[in-house]
Design a protein around this nucleic acid. Structure first.
Lengths: 196, 196, 196, 196
DNA sequence: GATGAATGAGGGTTCATTCAT
DNA sequence: GATGAATGAACCCTCATTCAT
């Protein structure tokens, strides 16, 4: 349309460029809307903010969860990568665990509604749930096992319930000033300590 | 109207009996539906299950929160009353606290979606939230203070965030067999222990 | 119930007394509610104000129109009776007509929503409409004919459209301070004057 | 998007054409339903008649008043434009006023329920009311002032109550064959004549 | 007779998702 | 590919009217 008289190839490329640009706009818009209205924000709001039609969202992200994943992929991945790094650089495995949990909680708390979306009962966030677990479960497991091996914490808690618990504790943390999720998560971690 | 005469009294009572029977049916139906579909279940579903019209629900329970309160009032009240009793009968305040938390968790976990409803962000459950807090906050506070006074736990956690945390940990506990809310709550309580 | 040990007759009479008392309370309550909320006020509001059940209203006044009629019967009748009296006491038939119209307008305007109820399209006010016409049409006709006979006004307007017109002009007169129904009715009557 | 190119332009236009076609269907359907059931007809009825979903109506006309305005905009505008034209082409301002009032009455009477909607008390028709007044008040004012300036009518009646009066006189005119709104409006206008 | 609980039709509104253009 | 119009199921809530007690 824009480049009249060009070859089909160029047309196709320009289309792709358009598509990619759109996808990026979508991610940016979604990130903003998620922050202001939570991850359950109406699809239309996101489309409007991105300046595209709702259909475009569905093309790029068939499921709402797909969109959420895409939006937070970088941060999830960073969180995943931080695990081994912290383990290597911290004085003890337990210290690494504490720091990593901090990262994870920051991530959940600062994203309005993400913690809720991570809850297991929501069927429409299945892929989101899955992705998070796939990325973070091994890391968390590694940290827990290391800390258990060093005798700092008990060894009878799996990473899955642990992460679920942290996720749950972060629910609603952004909307209630009287509720300090980090505090409670710290208590939970403290509860893991080996009863000397 | 309120005369002690038998006929009129019985007539009035019988009328009330009808209404009460209906109300009871409503409570039963709501309890069932809440379990199967959560406390956000459509009004009509509850009405249908109870075999009454929707208007009947609105008559008895103008607000959804009113209905939820009514459904769980006994249990909430029992939970509230258990606090002092446990304090009196347990070897230590900490033991009482642990047992009481158990009761509370049982209550939250066995009622599908109740924990979610207890979260602070839902505006339409204001009355419910309020009622729960009014009943249970003082009790929880008393238990925490007693345990703190006896030196068993730290004294810097208020009852409100504590209860919110417990409530959050119970979210989704009924739908995921891999998630053991009681375990995590136990860890949270363990985290309260005075770092000897 | 109250007079234990009385004869059936006395009981029956007391019932009637009760019924009459109820009916009066109903009329009073309805009058008040009509003023504050219009003649379309919910049935329950009236029952509540009267301190009776809704069923009682339906027993006494099967139709809302029946209730409205009953409430305003005195005033309608007074309006009807005023016609001949004014005709007899006024200097000219036209003067009598003007005064009578004043009465009628006062009646309609001071009763919130009555003018609306008098409109022909509302099917549920049929009996009301009918009663009003039955009582007032002959009177109005007489006044119009007298004024026409004396040459003061044209003779080609029937009482029915005339009254409908007046009724309509009074619609909404009580809720809009910028709208002066009496003014417009006066113009309408002025428009009747024989084009000398 | 707005480029003058043929293909894209036609594509954009064709999309709009579809929507416009639908919008037109909606306007037609609404017009019909308004005639048969009044402007208070259920949204669903209009949607059904137009063969569209209810959502489509809400998309095009967020408020019922918006729909009513759209349906009658042409006629209101025509009425507004007719004022100056009549003033220019009529022998006297009074004659122009009479003709214009005829147009206005025709408009109100032939649209079932429109007159009622024009009444001031209905809160949900605010925009409608506003639009009508904005369009027609200046015109009516001009006509009244011209006729007053020429000494044909009294000068102490504002356009607003005048129009309200006409509107009111037209209420129910379509459903009652015995009620001739035009007749009464003519009398009202006649009542304005300067008492020579 | 009186009561008021129950009914359920009726109307409004939102929003995820599809699909013609 | 992008668009956004259309769909319509799903909810909510009100209130006139009936009828068992």
């Amino acid at each position: 349309m824009n480049d009249s008289g060009q070859s089909a190839g160029s047309s196709a490329r320009s289309k792709r460029k358009d598509a990619r640009r759109n996808q990026q706009a979508l991610l940016d818009a979604a990130a903003e809307v998620f922050v202001s209205s939570g991850v359950d924000a109406p699809v239309r709001d996101i489309a409007a903010r991105a300046g595209v039609g709702v259909g475009t969202i569905y093309r790029h992200f068939p499921t709402r969860a797909d969109l959420v994943i895409a939006v937070y992929r970088h941060q999830v991945d960073a969180c995943a990568e931080a695990g081994p790094a912290l383990l290597a650089s911290s004085p003890t495995p337990h210290a690494a665990l504490v720091r990593w949990v901090d990262l994870f909680v920051d991530f959940l708390v600062t994203k309005h509604g993400l913690a809720t979306a991570m809850q297991g009962d929501s069927t429409c966030f299945g892929p989101l749930h899955t992705y998070f677990l796939e990325q973070l479960l091994p890391v968390c497991t590694q940290l827990l096992e290391a800390a258990a091996a060093s005798g700092e914490i008990r060894s009878d808690l799996d990473a899955y319930p642990f992460m679920r618990g942290i996720g749950n504790l972060c629910v609603g943390a952004d909307s209630d000033p009287h509720y300090d999720a980090r505090r409670l998560v710290a208590l939970l971690v403290a509860g893991l300590r080996q009863p000397q």
